[in-house]
């Protein structure tokens, strides 16, 4: 029982720490790609804490304030459903299909909050975010189905267990893994899919009115978000991990490759992004699905 409680408290903290560490590393690596020295490694911590201790905060209403809170609550919920290095709290309470919806809770809560900021920039941002979500969901669903059929289960712990001994989905279903990687870009809003917050177009979109502790909470939820998306990828395709260090290293490998592509691509327009996702990733994912079906 005590162990359960410890895990329940520890899992979100570890997830947050991992997500935050990726945010730190990202800024440093990006700076080096851009031929800069870059900020100190713990700069994101300073940023988040500074935002939290702002003396003045504004709110456009209850829903506006609830947005970041729901975003974090949804993220914490999702963390419990993703097997994290050997232990998994709630994988028995909801499977992969449920997880796809659980992962949407945070985004939808955030969308509600941003909508309440009464700013068209935010509205356009959300409209783009949901459209993009619709875009990458199609290939995501197809690869999730392929993986579920491959292992005849939708339970994530079982999927991870089935990949033990290096029998990763990455090797058995390489096409799905590639699509999963591309989908993760969209889900994380990295270039070229940073359409939602594109500052030159919609002035950071949904975050346009958020400042102070609200923005700090959004940054925390972004750290969770990075963790969730990449951990899901690792669990689905890289066989999870039995201890936290290997898990971290696998996640880091995925994230590192992502940043490498991230900084050399201009961004899509939103409808082009949806068209892109519904064209090549979908076709490739379908091919992979048919391979699974035929096998």
């Amino acid at each position: 029982m005590v162990k359960m409680i410890l895990i329940a408290i520890g899992a979100p903290l570890v997830a947050f720490a991992i997500g935050l560490s990726f945010m730190m590393i990202k800024r440093k690596i990006v700076a080096r790609i851009q031929r800069r020295y870059g900020p100190t490694i713990i700069q994101p911590i300073y940023d988040v804490l500074k935002l939290l201790v702002k003396e003045d905060n504004i709110s456009h209403g209850v829903i506006f304030s609830l947005g970041p809170i729901i975003a974090i609550a949804g993220s914490i919920l999702a963390v419990f459903f993703i097997p994290m290095a050997g232990f998994s709290m709630l994988t028995g309470s909801g499977d992969l299909i449920a997880l796809l919806y659980i992962m949407a809770i945070g985004s939808l809560g955030m969308a509600l909050g941003a909508g309440d900021s009464a700013n068209p920039n935010a509205s356009i941002g959300i409209s783009r975010a949901l459209t993009l979500m619709f875009g990458y969901d199609l290939p995501l669903v197809i690869i999730v189905i392929s993986v579920a059929l491959q292992y005849h289960t939708t339970n994530l712990s079982d999927i991870v267990a089935a990949q033990a001994n290096g029998n990763w989905t990455l090797w058995t279903l390489p096409l799905s893994a590639i699509v999963g990687f591309v989908v993760t870009y969209g889900a994380l809003g990295e270039h070229p899919f940073d359409i939602v917050t594109a500052p030159h177009e919609v002035a950071t979109g949904p975050m346009v009115e958020y400042g102070g502790k609200h923005l700090g909470f959004l940054m925390i939820s972004h750290a969770f978000h990075i963790y969730i998306e990449i951990a899901l990828f690792v669990d689905l395709f890289l066989g999870g991990a039995s201890n936290i260090l290997i898990f971290y290293l696998k996640m880091f490998a995925v994230f590192f490759i992502m940043i490498m592509f991230d900084e050399v691509l201009p961004r899509f327009k939103i409808d082009d992004a949806v068209r892109f996702y519904w064209k090549w990733p979908t076709v490739v994912a379908l091919i992979s699905l048919i391979i699974v079906l035929v096998k």
Partner: peptide, 16 residues
């Protein structure tokens, strides 16, 4: 131009 298209790397390089 690169900045408006979201490619900040080139902006960093060329302005430098």
């Amino acid at each position: 131009l690169a900045g408006t298209l979201g490619l900040y790397t080139l902006a960093q390089w060329s302005i430098g």
